[in-house]
Simulated assay, not measured.
Amino acid sequence: MGLRSIIVLVVLVGVRGSSTSEAASTDISAQSKIKSETAEDTGQKSTLPVEVTEDNMMATGELNPNHYPAQRAAKVVQHYFNTRYGSPYRLFGLQQVHSGNAEDVSNSGRRYQLEISVHEIISNKTQKCSAEVFFPRGEGSLFAEVQASPCEELLINTKLQEEALYQQYKNNQSLLSAQNLPDSYGHIEPNMEPFWHLAIVASSFIMLKESTENTLYNMAQVASIKQLDTENDQLKFECNVLLHEMVSQEILQWKLLFTWSSAEGINVLEKEQLPHCHSCEKAPNSK
């Protein structure tokens, strides 16, 4: 797939910078169940919230909910919800940041307190939730810490659908394999949508770990996904994904090995960042 096609896909799944109630749309709402919506509804002409400046990144006190500091912290909450509650039939996005506050915590890091609207993509339900994100400072592998209200209205019961999907692919004679989800026209075959969702949830484990105050990650595309043989009760997948880091405008390639079952959920076994794709590197700003 060429650079132009990838950037079009990223724009479709990007963050809205509008100051209206439609600000900060989800990075995946242009597809899945919402594929039937119009381009206007899915934020086709998305822009990033504001130009990045040091003062903006280090803002304290009350934050503009449409500017980078609040948006970045809120995006981490989206990845957190997907890692905790995501499934082939339950997927979370950030719809809107209502308010935000940031404070320095001694020399240990910065804490963000947020009021956001979280969108469960497949059921098209939205709920306002409170969340706290702490970005630690220091050397070593330091990851963002998230605490959030559970947003129970969004935790729809999908066990029957998940069990049916699990049994179908557990007993299939041939192993699943697919590429370019979505394709350059934004299309995904209906039977591939649950696995696209699975790959997004698995990618949220990467994006949650990689997120800092200086990053803003979106899923761009599942380049490939294939089912592997397994000797236990888990379905096992190898997956290559393209992630858009919207601050640097880089398209990053990651390889994932993960398992899934309706009983155990997703377990990421291995993850590896691959060398940059020359045709994907340094993508221009999406407008």
Rank of each mutant, 00 (worst) to 15 (best):
S248W: 02
V76L: 09
M219K: 00
A70T: 02
G140R: 01
L176W: 00
P194C: 04
Q161Y: 14
A73G: 02
T26D: 01
I251T: 03
E213I: 02
Y80P: 01
I266M: 11
E62Q: 09
N172Q: 13
L181P: 00
F135P: 00
V76T: 15
H276L: 09
Q44S: 11
Q95G: 11
M207T: 02
G2Q: 09
H276G: 09
E62Y: 06
S177T: 10
E62W: 04
Q227A: 02
T47H: 06
G14I: 06
I251V: 10
T38A: 03
I34L: 14
A102S: 13
N180K: 02
S32T: 10
C129K: 00
E37I: 05
I116D: 03
E153D: 15
Q173G: 04
Q71L: 10
M57I: 14
G2E: 13
C239T: 13
N191G: 01
P150E: 15
R72G: 14
T158M: 06
L257D: 11
S46D: 03
K209Y: 03
H197Y: 01
D229N: 13
Q234W: 01
K271T: 04
M219I: 14
V52N: 06
Q96T: 10
K35Y: 12
H187N: 09
Y112L: 08
E210H: 11
V13W: 03
P88I: 03
W254M: 05
A199K: 01
A102I: 07
N124V: 06
T38F: 05
Y89Q: 10
K75L: 15
L91G: 02
M58G: 08
M246K: 14
Q96L: 12
S19R: 15
A59N: 10
Q168I: 00
M192I: 09
N218Q: 09
E193K: 12
E62G: 01
E37P: 00
L160P: 00
P69S: 06
S108D: 08
F195K: 10
C280T: 08
S32V: 07
T20L: 01
S36E: 09
F134A: 15
S46I: 04
E210G: 00
V97H: 12
Y217K: 11
T126S: 04
Q234G: 01
S36L: 07
F143S: 01
T60C: 10
M246Q: 12
N240Y: 08
R110D: 05
A164K: 15
Y85K: 11
N172C: 10
